[in-house]
């Protein structure tokens, strides 16, 4: 069965929501590049829950609302409002990579709005001794190997599909990177460590074993800082975008967490 597509609106910001599956609701905030197309990990996840993949402002399906948002807080507020508009208030909130940074903020600023939290290699932390890689200062031909262990996986995500507009598609790809840069430039640091204690819900932290963007060691800081119970799982053999490298492993880890 295919996923459905609806458009939601929250205080002037419109967003695409892709839905699939049944059972407990899970709001999904995609990672670097957003979701220019549906990915198999969402199919695997939809076997266990109702997946609501919400496009964040500026990311594919998220229009140009990012240009109205000037701070991390304004991005977090828009995310909070879109999650609520998608009918997912109080549900599980899952955020990957740059989407993970905003999922953390929502859970920290509005703790009552998140039932459970899943963070997959989230942006936001910064350790001087082990800094994250700058994802925006990269040659185009180097990004694929930076993001994934599976050669070509990232490039396949951003490659234009058959019906894509040859002019608008590459612009949309750049816009997604711009949107993440808008709230994470220049260091990917949100200083969320000051707010982690406000996260009280049960939390699953997933990290690709071979993540070359966000150091896997950061999982320990999340485990130590978050007030709620924290489970940390490493996705063996996966890079930063583990959802592309090992979709079943990511989905199964989330399924176990939802049942627990």
């Amino acid at each position: 069965m295919d996923h459905s597509e609806t458009t939601i609106s929250a205080h002037g910001i419109e967003s695409r929501v892709w839905r699939k599956g049944s059972g407990p609701k899970l709001a999904y905030l995609a990672g670097f590049a957003g979701l220019p197309k549906w990915i198999p990990m969402l199919d695997a996840l939809a076997a266990h829950c109702e997946v609501n993949a919400i496009s964040l402002p500026g990311f594919p399906g998220g229009g140009r609302g990012h240009l109205q948002l000037d701070s991390l807080f304004e991005f977090a507020l828009a995310t909070h409002d879109l999650v609520a508009a998608a009918g997912c208030r109080g549900a599980t909130l899952m955020g990957a990579s740059v989407g993970g940074a905003l999922a953390m903020e929502v859970a920290a600023i509005w703790p009552d709005s998140v039932g459970k939290l899943v963070l997959q290699s989230p942006f936001g932390l910064y350790d001087d001794a082990n800094p994250p890689t700058d994802p925006w200062a990269q040659r185009g031909d180097k990004v694929d190997a930076l993001m994934c262990e599976t050669e070509g996986a990232y490039n396949a995500l951003i490659a234009a599909h058959g019906n894509a507009d040859a002019v608008e598609w590459p612009i949309e790809t750049v816009r997604a990177r711009e949107a993440s840069a808008r709230y994470l430039w220049p260091n990917s640091a949100t200083h969320v460590e000051k707010r982690l204690g406000r996260i009280v819900c049960p939390t699953l932290v997933l990290w690709g074993e071979k993540d070359k963007v966000q150091p896997p060691a950061y999982a320990g800081a999340l485990r130590d800082g978050i007030s709620g119970s924290v489970t940390v799982e490493t996705i063996a053999g996966a890079g930063h975008m583990a959802e592309l490298d090992r979709p079943d492993a990511v989905a199964n880890a989330v399924a176990r967490f939802l049942k627990g």
Binding site: W136, Q138, A166, E168, P170, E178, W185
Partner: peptide, 21 residues
């Protein structure tokens, strides 16, 4: 180094569009 040439958002979408077209 070309990795410093194109930070996302620096070039307006209108200019990107004109360039591609």
């Amino acid at each position: 180094d070309p990795r410093f040439a194109m930070p996302p958002g620096y070039t307006t979408e209108a200019t990107q569009r004109a360039g591609i077209e």
